[in-house]
Amino acid sequence: MASLIEVEGVSQIFETREGQANWALWQVSLEIEAGEFVCLIGPSGCGKTTLLHLIAGFMKPSEGRVRFAGAPVGEPGPDRGVVFQEYALFGWMTARQNVEFGLRMRGMGRAERRERAREALARVGLERALDRYPHELSGGMRQRVAVARALVNEPRVLLMDEPFAAVDAITRTTLQDDLVRLWQQTGVSVVFVTHNVDEAAFLAQRVVVMRPHPGSVKRSMTIDLPYPRQRSSAEFAGLYADIGAALGE
């Protein structure tokens, strides 16, 4: 059977401010299985966000093919939930209304989508923040709402673009714990972009290390450490060192 996401020889060209052509990605190939948790890691300019946007359907590759569930990626859709770095929640809607948005677009009835949104928010521990506006929530709570907003549509894959980069370190570890739990409960695939070695080592079944100029895949490392991972363990320390070394090569 084909993989859930197939990226074949994909290149992406951009124009820089100076009017030069710049390859954000150069002949990248990658396969991601259903239910897999993959972290894309690399320095800025390595094209990891571009790769995520190509899978989401925000842009078309200049060259090569991106396939999702056996078909070429077209427009963005609820089968590929996206969680952005920040400021992506609709500020004019409450937490519940934000989560309901996708269901509403599907034409689901009011009562049912209210109940589904409540459940989705309860799953990320935000039952009590239902009727609060994003500006009344902390950074960590906002990202929980963003995860609930994507997951409520039951996507096949969750595309996450440095979602925890803007929250404080203590909140970040709780969010990471919760993400692993949600991933295990729902069986959704996760493609998670980060530039944080610790985060990749804690979360991923597979870490794809990328390099810039032009953006390309340097190494793909499978991690078979069981969950939940202990940051204090010797294995974790070794893993951290391995990913760090792969980045620095």
């Binding site: 989401a56 925000f58 859709g77 996206v82 952005f84 992506a88 948005f101 996708g102 677009m105």
Partner: peptide, 20 residues
Amino acid sequence: VYLRSAACLGAGKLATMFLV
């Protein structure tokens, strides 16, 4: 990011205009 959020949540043109 708002437009992309709306798109990946399945919003059409009209819904995007009035709700986003």
